[in-house]
Nucleic acid binder design. Structure first.
Length: 311
DNA sequence: TGAATTTGACCTTG
DNA sequence: CAAGGTCAAATTCA
């Protein structure tokens, strides 16, 4: 973790508070029926807890970002990432481990920012959004092609969200998904979109795809610094079939790679034993990438939800 | 027949 | 010039 003493102290305190609230929320939910986000049925009291969690996380992130601003500026001045933001090119170098050493460009047409969110996801590429494939590229040094998707609503709503999907060489059952741009199609279009996520505080998805109860929404696999969440199947199209020839894994599990922008937070989460519940945890996750991890966590409870930014 | 996918060409960057 | 990202015509699918 970088040196960010005052900010990290404050962030740690905030995250600890948020975690306490999450624990209370979890305890409440474990004794209830699954809470269906987006249905407007959040029980009174739970909303307060979620609000508290959101506040704490937002403040923690603000503190961490403030502390990392100077470091980021210094890193950018180092030269390796300079052009990406200057010319609107994203962090392709982060899109795949197989190409991280030689992939330096990510073209971002349309003017959205250079933020990227990387996700490693098992079994399925589905994320609750409907994507249209617009390209496929063999990547030098990689066994698997990279698939390029943009939001289906790009033309209708000018939604500039894009994502890149590539099968992991280390584990072919894992899809490396990098998100770029914000989904601007959602808020005006909720009634047309599939029911996107169900918050599960219980076990993993059942065989028939019905969401089940499970534990905490947060979990950490610990061994490799990855944060793991999982989601239930959704109504997104399923282009993963193209890549999933040898995949037998049905866990449908996301692995959010420790973000370059949030090493402090993830490290802190680990050191704080952020989630003592390791196995069987699931969290349905819309994977809308945007301004911050928790800016729109409200939508995680029925609205939007944003998380790790790589840049 | 319209929508989605495929795929080669083109563009930009290092 | 190589590599990666996007475009767009051709093709496939429902």
């Amino acid at each position: 973790m970088a040196s960010c003493a005052p900010a990290c102290d404050a962030a740690s305190e905030l995250v600890a508070r948020g975690r306490d609230s999450a624990a209370v929320l979890q305890a409440l939910l474990l004794g209830q029926q699954p809470v269906v986000a987006g249905a407007g049925a959040t029980p009174h009291g739970l909303q307060e807890l979620t609000d508290e969690i959101l506040r704490c996380c937002d403040r923690a992130l603000a503190a961490l970002r403030e502390s990392s601003t100077e470091e980021d500026a210094a890193a950018a001045a180092g030269g390796t990432r300079k052009r990406k933001t200057e010319r609107g090119y994203g962090p392709a170098a982060h899109a795949s481990p197989a190409t991280s050493s030689n992939s330096k460009r990510m073209r971002v047409r349309g003017g959205e920012g250079a933020r990227a969110t990387r996700v490693e996801k098992r079994s399925s590429m589905e994320d609750g959004f409907i994507w249209r494939k617009y390209g496929q590229k063999e990547i030098h040094g990689s066994m698997y092609p990279r698939l390029y998707y943009r939001c289906t609503y790009k033309d209708e709503h000018g939604c500039m969200a894009r994502r890149q999907v590539q099968q992991s060489e280390d584990d072919p059952s894992v899809f490396l998904i990098t998100y770029f741009g914000d989904h601007t199609c959602r808020r005006d279009d909720d009634d047309e979109r599939p029911a996107q996520f169900v918050i599960n505080f219980g076990s993993s998805t059942s065989d028939d795809g019905q969401p089940q109860q499970s534990g905490s929404p947060w979990s950490s696999c610990g061994d490799d610094g990855l944060v793991v969440v999982s989601k239930t199947p959704d109504l997104c199209n399923s282009p993963e079939e193209e890549l999933r020839s040898s995949t037998g894994n049905e866990s449908d599990e996301f692995i959010i790679e420790q973000s370059a922008s949030f090493p402090e937070l993830t490290s802190m989460m680990s050191s704080m034993e952020w989630d003592p519940l390791v196995d069987g945890n699931s969290l349905d996750w819309p994977f809308c990438e945007g301004e911050s991890l928790f800016d729109d966590i409200g939508e995680f409870m029925g609205h939007d939800f944003n998380y790790f930014d790589l840049l």
